[in-house]
Design a protein around this nucleic acid. Structure first.
Lengths: 318, 318
DNA sequence: CTGAAAGCGCTTACAG
DNA sequence: CTGAAAGCGCTTACAG
């Protein structure tokens, strides 16, 4: 592999000049810069990241942290985020390092090692939980981090999120406007995730504005019977806004079994189902994970002042 | 951060001795090794990976390459693999670097940069396609790589895979033995993926052995009508072996709509569906992605002779 | 069993 | 506008 020393020798320049030229240092004449770069190209020069990182006392890597426990459904979202993150990192000549484990301790050790041994100074967390030990750690260290999902009330750090209230309202509006649904119900998990609360709020607002009576289904994980009961108790329902695609699909199927000849329109979130499992009555709000990943990287590299912590809201679409 | 120089000073030893002691070099007395390690602990010494990598001319990182295009269903599998890979890497003090992109060129550039700039010498590919440019590249470079999935006939390299023929047979056997299914059909996608062919072969063998007439469904992506037709033409079917969970679930639902009061047992592969979408008649063969990831790392670090390329078969379970 | 020294390939303060 | 030199924190061949 050619090094800057090789370029220097070949051109009768010093190593320092070559280094500066390649880094576009103003102090080197434009002409020299051009010539050096051309020669670098010719020799197939590739910078040695390890050497650079050693001198810089900082790795050209972003640590991407996965949550310890996640629902199967979320994995699709994570891979979308990875795509966006890496696309943005490539153009910055940065590398994507993953921290993933089966216990909090494991992930915590992983992240610590990234900070102290690998000298990584920038992190993206694919989640945003309250009282998360990784977040606690990162706040104390001289590093920058961005979470996917907003912090709990009272907490403050860089994050990327969707506008879930609006996503809830838009999903509801979509069913009413496009498919003339009159009585959409709102279905959520029993877990009360922050994004669910927001989407529910959006649904409630939209229903209030249209003078319709809202109905909330808390869909149990296992108990099919209870779900059937809910469906039977609400003969008026002709649409479903579900906090995620899985919940939506589940209701859709039970509804079809109970009312084989009634039509119903469903909208879920995340585009997490393959075509094989859906049809033209099933819709999904795209939260654009790739764009969220890209936004996270951009946020991570903006040198924001500590006083005004920023965030980015990524648009959704149906 | 404490360095080996700090340890050396503090103990009145040379830097070389400390370095050797920490690396458990035989030439250093056991006593000195112990004392050095203790001091390292006390000072909170953490090795600087960048320095080490620079001297070693090799990064302590494994490049994990995602396929460019993948089905939504596969993402779940990938995250499982990542979990296994990283678990194994942590114990080796190695780091997981991801290459993921939206075009072959992008991924190829990413991998090239990992080799030449980051000096990564070990790779795991989460796929095994024929004529893949990344694989072509890696074969020419002085690096080691392992693929998830066996290479096409005639090709040879390190890989981890399941025994899909047996997985096909086992799935079939499972339905017949445990649920007294008499006429399971086999459902596959129109794509003819290698693992599908293997699972089908396993199904066929099992059916032949039990003297039953096999039936193959090629399930179209979109055309629900055609699927209904297939179900109607086979009134004898009381079980489904599906090459993946999605295909299985799709048939399950259509069957339920067409025959609301008939029972049917389904087995798919990959455990890619959340509990919310399945019930006690739906089963799935676990291919143990985490174990596959671990096996891949182990293979990657075995210094196998070039003449006898190895592979690992990970057991499945139902 | 231990040490002095060179070197890995960069960046950058200092000097001119 | 350019260069000589120091230094980042390790490992290892060479010497004793």
């Amino acid at each position: 592999m050619a090094t800057i020393r090789d370029i220097a020798k070949k051109m009768g320049l010093s190593v320092s000049t070559v280094s500066r030229a390649l880094n576009d240092n103003q102090r080197i004449s434009i002409d020299t810069r051009k010539r050096v770069k051309k020669m670098a190209q010719e020799l197939g020069y590739q910078p040695n990241y390890n050497a650079r990182n050693l001198t810089n006392q900082e790795a050209n890597a972003v640590g991407v942290v996965f949550p310890v426990n996640n629902r199967v459904v979320d994995n699709i979202f994570y891979v979308g985020l990875l795509r966006g993150i890496n696309e943005e990192l490539i153009s910055k000549n940065y590398v994507l390092s993953v921290a993933i484990g089966n216990s909090t301790e494991q992930v915590l050790e992983n992240v610590k090692s990234m900070i102290t041994r690998a000298q990584i100074k920038r992190f993206i967390l694919l989640y945003s939980h309250i009282n998360d030990p990784v977040i606690e750690l990162l706040r104390k260290q001289p590093v920058t981090f961005v979470t996917i999902g907003k912090p709990a009330a009272g907490q403050k750090w860089l994050y990327v999120d969707n506008n879930n209230v609006r996503a809830g309202a838009d999903g509801t509006h979509f069913l009413m406007k496009r498919f003339h649904v009159s009585n959409p119900i709102f279905a959520e998990s029993p877990n009360g995730w922050p994004y669910e609360l927001d989407r529910r709020e959006g649904y409630l607002r939209e229903m209030a504005q249209k003078n319709r009576k809202p109905v909330i289904f808390a869909v149990p994980d296992e108990d099919e019977h209870q779900l059937d009961q809910l469906i039977k108790e609400n003969p008026q329902m002709d649409g479903v806004v579900a906090t995620d695609d899985y919940t939506g699909l589940k209701i859709y199927h039970r509804f079809k079994v109970l009312h084989p000849d009634k039509e119903i329109e469903v909208v879920g979130y995340n585009k997490s189902l393959p075509n094989e499992l859906t049809d033209q009555h099933f819709h999904s709000v795209d939260l654009h994970p790739k764009e969220m990943g890209q936004a996270a990287v951009q946020l991570l590299f903006e040198n924001c002042t500590e006083t005004r912590l920023k965030h980015t809201i990524v648009e959704h679409s149906i």
